[in-house]
């Protein structure tokens, strides 16, 4: 079995709590690198998001820097106003047009994760009020990656997980608090 090298997490409305909960359940022994596209206002949060998330997890949380490294057990967030992509095990940023009315866009991140990592990727769609992430999760599934969707009934906003479920039949649909244990288990089993 192929080991998973990357976990890509997408969230929008309600994402601060949801992403924080998933990251809180992972620790330094987690062998994959984590990338996160959380929709955020380009104007108003001056680097607050990484700080808030870092408080909830033992993992190192940083905002993506141009061509910065992706490392196992560390979390890279899409900066406000930039798309986050991955290439050659490092970060690529782009200020291209909004995708799904968003920059960062979850689809952009997930599609590049699918291309770069294929079956070594895990995609996770959490709470949100728009369909961003559905096409990206489908791309991860098409390339043989593992897919997880937050149970819409446990999501603060269910539109985003519902759109993902309409686009792909994921490997797991889980309530929020069971997502981190699931990630730990599938990564450990595949390693």
């Amino acid at each position: 079995m192929t080991a998973y090298e990357i976990v890509a997490i997408g969230a929008s409305w309600g994402g601060l709590h949801a992403v924080g909960t998933v990251l809180a359940g992972l620790d330094g022994s987690f062998g994959a690198s984590v990338v996160v596209a959380q929709h955020r206002d380009g104007h108003d949060d001056q680097g607050l998001l990484p700080e808030l998330l870092a408080r909830r997890t033992a993992l190192r949380v940083t905002e993506g820097e141009d061509k910065g490294p992706l490392a196992p057990g560390s979390v890279v967030l899409a900066p406000a106003g930039y798309h986050l992509l991955v290439e050659d095990r490092s970060v690529e940023l782009s200020c291209e047009d909004l995708v799904q009315f968003s920059r960062p866009s979850i689809d952009v991140l997930f599609e590049s994760v699918a291309e770069e990592y294929g079956e070594r990727a895990i995609g996770v769609v959490l709470t949100g009020a728009n369909p961003d992430g559905a096409a990206g999760l489908a791309a991860i599934a098409r390339r043989g990656g593992h897919t997880v969707v937050q149970d819409p009934q446990t999501a603060e906003r269910s539109e985003m997980p519902r759109a993902a479920l309409a686009a792909v039949t994921p490997d797991a649909v889980l309530p929020l608090e069971r997502i981190a244990p699931h990630l730990r288990r599938v990564c450990a089993e595949a390693a």
């Binding site: 690529e92 782009s94 291209e96 952009v108 590049s112």
Partner: peptide, 9 residues
């Protein structure tokens, strides 16, 4: 050029 965003375009 960096390839990931280039490929998208």
């Amino acid at each position: 050029y960096a390839r990931a965003s280039l490929r998208r375009r």
